[in-house]
Nucleic acid binder design. Structure first.
Length: 552
RNA sequence: GCGCCAGUAGCUCAGCUGGAUAGAGCAACGGACUUCUAAUCCGUAGGCCGGGGGUUCGAAUCCCUCCUGGCGCGCCA
């Protein structure tokens, strides 16, 4: 509407020979960062400066003069800075917007942007050979929140956990289990050098001895390892599932890597790639010729010289399977240490005939663990790490999730659990939750006085004129866009910033305006305002896996 | 050596598809609770946006280069 007005102004100015230009530029209307610069602004005059051979401010003045103010809800147009044109809208424009938001009720914030396209988000996918650590926690927070935002934005989303229950690390796992099991029975067997040293494994085997005694002791080694592994995997997976659940993460699908080997899917995909000429044979191994799909990627082993397929081969079969399940887009959340794998995976998808861009990877920088100011090398092998369980116990699920979601995946994080515990009461999450609790408290008090509102209550919104009220409405109106923006950019941290801003505006409103004990018309309008506000806060927090308490 | 990510206030970080005076929280300092929750609000102070060059009317943002830190680089996953 504003852009149209600018176009009209430009055309008229041209007709009157005030301006000379060949083609209209793309008129971009934006919301200025500073409120005093109006509700909307455009830099059209600056963009045109060269073509029209005029000073941007002069052009801006001409546009302002010709702008059809009378026919719109524009209150005033002014020129500022180097040539910005700022539009101030009448207050009623905002209250009209708010009235629309109210009619959307619980639906406000949901959009149909994604058109129901199927998207899969795969995250955490930790090896089931140990406990979940800080890196997994970050992946969980980022992946789950992104999935939540995509859902709000109108995508059909599935969350998936890929279980690495095959390959080398499972062998090491088996050997570690066996050693711990026999040790628990008092045998003096050496622990494998490259085994998993985590205490959880020791405990697991000790408890197995308690439960089932020495029934595996005399068995033949490979059978024993197989049984111990399947027992341990079952327990480990259910532990992982329950820890993630207490971190507010629920998956739609747990996908087993082993199942791809069992079903022959890996073999089939390798054969297919070979038939289609993508493979090289060198030093007894089969290599995928990555140079064929652009860039200067080096060949990568798919099948080792001993005939065993690599993780890469299984991963290709896995992603082929994903696309065959009908996902338009597949998003993986990986640690930055896997970045070398990204181009290769996308390339492999291209080799299989898929558009490589349908596989997206969010790389998150690693979490470095500190303790008392010293870097602690995180390693599952040596068993030194802070577990997700400890984190939840020490700082709480809400604070932990907010902590991770609020930072962009690109930022490297140093994490000191001791520090996190002492600072957990400073966590911004409480600022947001407190806003929600305060609103609930007002609503309860209002109900006590017999005041309540719903979508159908007749309310005169024009009495919402206080600056803090208008700011709140403006911010609320942004919500659906913010969700879509964060979802599309795959940057869930934006929503944390948004809800923090929103809470800040509420606290400001709270200190300036009373909801109860004022004129009834105003009281009802404000009740409606905070009702919508509470809903938006709750919805945003829910997407982040953070609860919105009624009381604090 | 090559590649990816980062470097912004004392600390933790936003801002980066170019835009107006670079923001927030914590920490510091000064104010505000007989009224809907002070886990709050208001104010003060704090910045060669890692360095240098370039493009542009305009650069924290784009390009080049250097420095620093993290991660990765063919039979691990």
């Amino acid at each position: 509407m504003l852009a149209q007005g600018v176009r009209i102004a430009l055309e008229k100015a041209k007709d009157d020979d005030k301006l000379d230009f060949d083609a209209l530029p793309d008129i971009v209307i934006e919301v200025p960062r500073e409120e005093k610069y109006g509700d909307f602004a455009t830099n059209a005059a600056m963009q045109m400066a060269r073509a029209a051979r005029k000073n941007p401010r002069e052009i801006a003045q001409i546009i302002a003069d010709y702008f059809p103010t009378h026919s719109t809800s524009v209150d005033s147009v002014e020129i500022a800075g180097p040539g910005f044109i700022n539009f101030h809208l009448k207050d009623t424009w905002l209250t009209e917007i708010f009235a629309k938001i109210v009619t959307e009720g619980e639906q406000f914030g949901n959009s149909s942007f994604g058109e129901g396209k199927k998207v899969q988000v795969e995250f955490v996918s930790a090896n089931p050979t140990g406990e979940l650590h800080m890196g997994n926690a970050r992946g969980a927070a980022i992946g789950d929140t992104l999935a939540g935002l995509l859902q709000l934005a109108g995508y059909q989303v599935e969350r998936e956990f890929y279980i690495n229950d095959a390959g080398n690390q499972i062998e090491k796992f088996a050997n570690s289990l066996e050693a711990r099991y026999l040790q628990a029975l008092g045998e003096d067997v050496p622990f494998p050098e490259d085994g998993y040293h985590g205490e959880d494994i020791t405990k697991l085997m000790a408890s197995l001895v308690e439960k089932e005694g020495d029934k595996y002791q005399k068995m033949e080694g490979s059978l024993r390892r197989e049984l111990l592994t399947s027992y341990a995997l079952k327990i480990k997976l259910s532990d992982i599932r329950s820890v993630l659940s207490s971190f507010a993460v629920e998956y739609d699908c747990w996908f087993s890597e082993q199942s791809l080997h069992d079903s022959g899917a890996v073999e089939i995909i390798v054969k297919r790639l070979q038939e289609e000429g993508w493979l090289l044979e060198k030093e007894g191994a089969l290599w995928l010729d990555c140079s064929r799909f652009g860039s200067d990627e080096k060949p990568e082993v798919l099948v080792r010289s001993n005939g065993v397929p690599t993780y890469y081969a299984a991963d290709i079969a896995y992603h082929d399977n994903k696309f065959k399940r009908g996902f338009d887009t597949v998003i993986n959340v990986w640690g930055a240490d896997h970045h070398g794998h990204v181009a290769r995976m996308q390339g492999a998808m291209e080799a299989l005939g898929y558009d490589r861009n349908r596989l997206e990877v969010i790389l998150m920088q690693l979490v470095r663990l500190y303790r008392g100011g010293e870097i602690v090398k995180m390693s599952k092998r040596t068993g030194t790490y802070v577990t997700l369980n400890e984190l939840i116990e020490e700082v709480g699920k809400d604070a932990a999730r907010f902590f991770f979601v609020a930072r962009s995946a690109d930022s490297q994080m140093d994490f000191d659990l001791d520090l996190a515990v002492t600072q957990s009461s400073d966590n911004p999450v409480y600022y947001v939750q407190y806003a929600h609790a305060r609103i609930c408290s007002i609503l309860a008090a209002a109900a006590g006085e017999g005041l309540s509102v719903d979508e159908n209550t007749k309310i005169n919104y024009d009495c919402l004129t206080h600056e803090s009220e208008l700011q709140l409405i403006r911010k609320l109106a942004d919500f659906p866009d913010e969700v879509v923006k964060a979802a599309v950019a795959r940057e869930p941290h934006h929503i944390a910033a948004y809800v923090l801003d929103l809470a800040g505006l509420f606290h400001n409103f709270y200190s300036h305006c009373r909801v109860l004990g004022v004129d009834k018309e105003l009281s009802l309008a404000r009740l409606q305002l905070i009702t919508v506000l509470a809903r938006v806060i709750k919805k945003a927090l829910a997407a982040m896996g953070v609860s919105a308490p009624q009381k604090m």
